[in-house]
Design a protein around this nucleic acid. Structure first.
Lengths: 250, 250
DNA sequence: TCCGATTTGTACGTATGTATT
DNA sequence: AAATACATACGTACAAATCGG
């Protein structure tokens, strides 16, 4: 049962792919201007509306910027960014995109009642049992990410096997629960190894080390909360970037 | 010279405002579904295309989500979020939105040659002089944000006066340099007070304290780099949230 | 300073497809 | 099977900014 669903890409997506490719082929130091909408539409064989749509999407991603009367230009520095904080890839992948070899270690797993706080976040009752899995992700052998996944046991349609804990949670939730995690909301703050024994052990920290921390609640395709993740990153190894629009009202 | 420019809002923006208002008036625990596109278009007196556009924008902001064949729904939990990490307001404002009284202290200011590293970021030559301002922002009297602004002196059209350092940089750059800061790209990581005397002093930290750190390069309306900011946040006081889309390819 | 060419921005309209109930 | 609602794609008209002559 591992046949991939056939999904033809929309024209919009195809145009975007085409533009990505074109941008990669450009010599940006000489010229960072894209052809005009008309020309792109003609060369790509689609309507100008479709081109506009694709360009606007890229503009929202900050990959390009557009100036009325002048043209459309590529944001050079954005191309250099590897890991964006506001997209949330799977951890192993994240480590590999950062240029390291990745390894996972399952530190512990248990099934216990949720308790008040977690129950509220996951929209279940405090007596409902949750699966709790503690993992460490290594980058070239060094601990880079420590995380704790918690999800309600009742969403599982089949029992878990030992190998399941090693898998990315998202994949597991899809396979055993038929739930796709599409988005999350996370609180972002810092933690320090000197104030938490688990962190000290996970990161083998002999002196105090600051960690980037995200506590997130993840939602599925029907907007149901299904997973809480506590993430701790060593930012010496995982370099995040973020693009911010200034919301200053001049 | 403080007359505000008249800027009529686009229909799209007006529709968005109208929807924001409508959403705020909803009893989300009873019903979080918005009226359909047709109905909204009719009631707002605009075309369905315009409504679609506005709805899609809100959807990209994660305020709503849309399901083909079902309808458009409000994301309850997103409404609760105060400070989003991927928008970058002015610091005083940020502290007030977090529910504190804000105060600024200018710790130091100087004008010196840029040096190699900064010159490259600001696209100037290393001998060009930069203005460097060190500030601490207090939340209810407690140090919450420490920052260092650096920008090329040559963008100033008029000399700086002492009061200028107290002002938000963005406002100053507009007044004295006619440059609007529209966006930035930031590296996000952590710092620890025990490893930096400036930080230890700024945050009056007796024991090691972890800080959320952003090193950002800011760009103006013509996409020119004009400002580097090193930001250090006490996340006990400033609570950031972030909405992430999972880019997992199922 | 103004004009015209170019280029993006805004708004409307319409036809057809696809998911949900 | 039909009705509803969103998704995709094409097309058009006009406005506004930019730039060269």
């Amino acid at each position: 049962m591992n046949i991939r669903k056939i999904k033809t890409k929309s024209l919009n997506e195809q145009v975007r792919d085409s533009l990505y490719e074109y941008i990669r082929s450009m010599d940006l130091n000489k010229n960072n201007q894209l052809p005009s909408e008309d020309i792109l539409a003609e060369q790509l064989g689609v309507s100008i509306t479709t081109v506009r749509n694709a360009l606007n999407t890229l503009s929202q991603e900050n990959l390009i910027f557009r100036k009325q009367g002048k043209g459309t230009f590529v944001n050079k520095e954005v191309l250099a960014i590897k890991i964006q904080l506001n997209s949330a890839p799977e951890f192993g992948q994240l480590i590999e995109e950062s240029g390291y070899d990745s390894e996972v270690e399952v530190v512990s797993h248990s099934i216990k009642p949720a308790g008040e706080e977690l129950a509220e976040k996951l929209e279940i009752s405090p007596e409902d049992k949750v699966v709790r899995v503690e993992k460490i992700f290594y980058a070239d052998g060094k601990p880079a990410i420590y995380c704790i996944d918690s999800y309600p046991e009742k969403i599982l349609l089949e029992p878990l096997t030992d190998g399941d804990y090693e898998k990315p949670v998202f994949q597991m939730l899809l396979e055993k629960g038929k739930r796709k995690v599409l988005r999350d909301t996370a609180d972002v703050f810092t933690s320090i190894t000197s104030e938490d024994e688990h962190l000290k052990r996970a990161f083998k920290a002999d002196r105090p080390k600051a960690l980037l921390t995200c506590h997130s609640v993840n939602y599925d395709q029907d907007n149901r909360a299904i997973l809480q993740v506590q993430e701790y990153y060593d930012t010496d190894l995982i370099k995040f970037s973020i693009l911010r629009k200034k919301d200053i009202h001049y």
